[in-house]
Computed example of a mutant assay.
Amino acid sequence: MQGTIIKGIGGFYYVKVNDNVIECKARGKFRHNELTPMVGDKVDISFISDTNKGSIDNIYERHNMLIRPAVANVTQALVVFSLTNPDISENLLNKFLMLCEHNNLKIVVCFNKSDLIKEPNKIDAVKMIKDAGYEILFLKAKEGIGIDKIRERLKKNVTVLCGPSGVGKSTILNRLARKNIMVTGDISEKLKRGKHTTRHSELIEIEGGFLVDTPGFSSLNTDFISKNEIQFCIPEFLEYINGCKFTGCMHYKEPACMIKNALNEGKINKKRYDFYIKILEEKIRGRSNK
């Protein structure tokens, strides 16, 4: 039988097969191959004789693998930022987008707390994201406004939420799941808990898809992305990359660069290009990008 691991804890893995969830152990061969099953893995299982429990016999090749949270085969990211309180850091927003692109995720940018801003479409960060071609949703998560639009995008996806602290990710998760999965920021502060609570990622089935029950990307370290890979994490560059005069053009100081031509013609947002150059220069100098 083929299924998806939706939870793993204490060496036990819970595999969703059709409408059933089967508790399984992994075969010893995976330890010998230094392969540990992960939440999100597509697996083959078989029942153990005379029990209603199973064993994991095969793990299918992963399309991607997030480390924190530890989830495989994620297909979609909801990148959540608030329009105010806290204010948007464009550099941080672009880093989240770069990490999602590196993991080949479909991206929906969610701007929360839209009720606190009169004209959200005029904010520079919103314009930058529109220019980059990303889908945008405006939310008022505490009131549940915009949550149904997210639900429509969950079908056939394994979706993770990511974004900085205080923007409403926990509220959105709880609204989508229709129950309290995550402690929200206000409650966490009152209880002085959250940072010291050990959590195990779990997939929750919603609207024909799966939602990861913990916010994603607890680390924004981008050291593992090489300087040559950065350009491919900026999707609005892609249609111009192959038109540059020189093979291996980094779109930096080289002449006859199609990316810079597109920038000068207003086809690429300058803030996005400046972010690319900032990250590229850090790589060239060998600086950390944490």
Rank of each mutant, 00 (worst) to 15 (best):
46 S>H: 08
46 S>C: 09
46 S>E: 15
47 F>C: 00
47 F>Y: 15
47 F>R: 04
48 I>K: 13
49 S>L: 12
50 D>Q: 13
50 D>R: 12
52 N>H: 09
52 N>S: 14
53 K>W: 09
53 K>D: 14
53 K>T: 14
54 G>N: 03
54 G>I: 04
54 G>E: 12
56 I>S: 11
57 D>F: 00
57 D>I: 03
58 N>F: 14
58 N>T: 14
59 I>G: 05
61 E>P: 00
61 E>K: 10
63 H>A: 12
63 H>T: 15
64 N>H: 04
64 N>P: 02
64 N>V: 04
65 M>N: 12
65 M>K: 13
65 M>C: 08
66 L>K: 04
66 L>M: 10
68 R>V: 02
69 P>C: 08
70 A>R: 11
71 V>S: 12
72 A>K: 02
73 N>S: 13
73 N>T: 13
73 N>V: 10
75 T>V: 07
79 V>N: 09
81 F>I: 12
81 F>Y: 13
83 L>S: 05
83 L>E: 11
84 T>G: 00
85 N>A: 10
85 N>D: 14
86 P>C: 05
87 D>A: 02
88 I>V: 11
89 S>H: 03
90 E>Q: 13
91 N>D: 13
91 N>C: 01
92 L>K: 06
92 L>I: 12
92 L>T: 05
93 L>Q: 06
94 N>V: 00
95 K>V: 03
95 K>P: 02
95 K>Y: 02
96 F>M: 04
98 M>C: 14
